[in-house]
Design a protein around this nucleic acid. Structure first.
Lengths: 330, 330
DNA sequence: CTGTTAGCGCCTTCAA
DNA sequence: TTGAAGGCGCTAACAG
């Protein structure tokens, strides 16, 4: 930078001002500096800038895993939104390991990043509160468990989506409707389950515990769970998979049993990840606004970074049913 | 850090040494410092460290997009391998925009990252060479076009895979075999095409230009291309999709036409992304060692970062056919 | 083995 | 509007 200053016949301070887009520089000076900068292809050292200004243009993003379409979609939109703010993402997959999250966050917050997006974190509310008290800005996205008041958070409305899915099945005339749940204790699982049961109840159908089986939100466990269901003396005529993976696994299980989807059994999923539309048959599912979730989270975070107040610390997004071909009248 | 030093009764330099795992510190001193560090939850500022030491623990990773299983797989393995070296990833999706790549790289190399992984870059060989001359360490992964000698690069062997796929179809008795290609000019497209044609020739089948159609490596264009093929007076009995997306699109097209896969038409893909196994029918495809590609690239890069020589600047990985249920005798 | 001494490259008051 | 000077927090010689 010194060289640029010398070549432009100004001081480093001025070069710094030009490079940072500071207003108090005369047009001529600015032009002169910019010419030299372009000519020599100069570019300021980010580490030095970060140290000196006490802030970086990096944002941390922790998430369980990358190679799941669900998270990839959030990651994609968040990264893009951040890019538009000239912010870069430091990627931190946690593999659902709480320990790793802690280590990563600890590193992230010490001078490396300006703030973070925590996708489905395993942090407890106390831990999050501590982070907050350290003055580190962050936004929780799609919390794994219920998040305490005052912690910025954007989440999907699981309940509404589950109601829509269940109603759809009921409207088609199904009465024996099974649910293949995800991990117990997760907010997504519990709220979807509540939506499922209360809708059944509302239609005068008593929830049957034998028709509620668990899985891990993966295709394989979804398949196994469906097989369990099909093996019952009175198998369900419809299955609500708590995510698309489960639903796809259930379709595979149905085929193994020689059952046609949707003629013999209707299947509905949740999330509407990319594979849902191209599955066979195309999956009826609940669309989650994943891209929007990423963008809104970035929005909240940048506001936090700018020290502006948040209009809402908690944003809840609506999801809606997308009817395709995996469901039919009972 | 000064505080820690004072509390531990040593100098900052010593604290620095302890924190950096430098060997020349007596066990007692080390313990004393570590106790204080833990007690106060101190953690060194990464920006300062980066500036001072002239190197960061960040690595840039550019790639076309995140939400494609193909890239997600590479990204995932690379991130994990980097994590094991205590290196973090700065994520830079380019959306295949050359301009954006340039801007991003320019930022990355100026103090922000220690080096980079360039997945399927649009940079020309001259541009890459320039980067190299700037002393910025990087490794190209799965190059879009042929990469010049001396530029570290790990790539799949497209040719071998295409030969395997084509041979498989020929062995099943198919003679009218179509190819749905990806973007023209891409290394992957050209080499797979060469493998396809030469295998046909080797079996005494003259490549028929009407049976070679293009696509963009996406599902939708794959579907459209397959439809074109099915509309021909003498439609093919087998289709080789140059990636799994194309193959999945072709399966959708087949269903639309009332053709059964594999009874009426065999379909083989390329890549073996996560969706291939769970497609219906499960897709016969060529498995690319995507995870391995990521790990090896990281391996090369860390060697570069450590200033060690590379055993091989160019690594080529083998791919192999995975036979599932989308192919059958003609 | 440990402390002292210079910076790393930039940003930011403060004066001019 | 511009320049001078100090410092951001840490590391890396070099002495001792």
């Amino acid at each position: 930078m010194q060289d640029v200053a010398a070549l432009a016949g100004v001081s480093m301070a001025t070069v710094s001002r030009v490079l940072s887009g500071h207003p108090d520089v005369s047009p001529e000076t600015r032009d002169a500096v910019q010419r030299i900068v372009r000519q020599y292809g100069f570019s300021k050292n980010r580490s030095a800038g970060a140290l000196s200004a006490g802030k970086t243009s990096l944002v941390g993003l922790t998430l369980p895993r990358i190679d799941a379409p669900y998270f990839a979609a959030i990651l994609d939109s968040a990264t893009e939104a951040l890019y538009e703010q000239d912010l870069r993402v430091v990627l931190c997959p946690t593999h659902h390991e709480h320990e790793r999250e802690i280590v990563l966050l600890e590193r992230l917050m010490h001078g490396m990043t300006a703030g973070a997006l925590l996708v489905m974190p395993h942090e407890s509310n106390e831990e999050l509160r501590t982070l907050q008290n350290h003055g580190y800005p962050f936004v929780v996205v799609d919390p794994l468990r219920s998040v305490a008041d005052g912690i910025p958070c954007v989440s999907p409305n699981h309940y509404i989506g589950a109601v829509a899915a269940t109603e759809h099945l009921i409207d088609l005339g199904h009465r024996r409707i099974a649910a293949i749940k995800g991990y117990d204790g997760w907010l997504a699982t519990e709220e979807r389950l509540t939506g499922f049961r209360s809708t059944l109840l509302g239609a005068g159908i008593a929830p049957d515990p034998r028709l509620e089986v668990s899985s891990d939100y993966g295709i394989e466990r979804g398949r196994e769970a469906a097989l369990l269901l099909f093996n019952q003396p009175e198998p369900p005529t419809a299955i609500f998979g708590f995510n698309d993976n489960i639903a796809i696994g259930a379709m595979i299980a149905a085929r193994e049993r020689g059952l046609r989807v949707p003629e013999d059994v209707s299947i509905v999923g949740f999330d509407d990840v990319v594979g849902a539309r191209t599955a066979f048959p195309p999956l009826t599912t609940v669309r989650q606004p994943l891209a929007e979730m990423g963008r809104i989270a970035v929005d909240l975070l940048t506001r936090l970074l700018d020290g502006k107040p948040l209009d809402a610390v908690r944003v809840e997004l609506q999801s809606k049913l997308v009817v395709r071909e995996s469901t039919a009248p009972a």
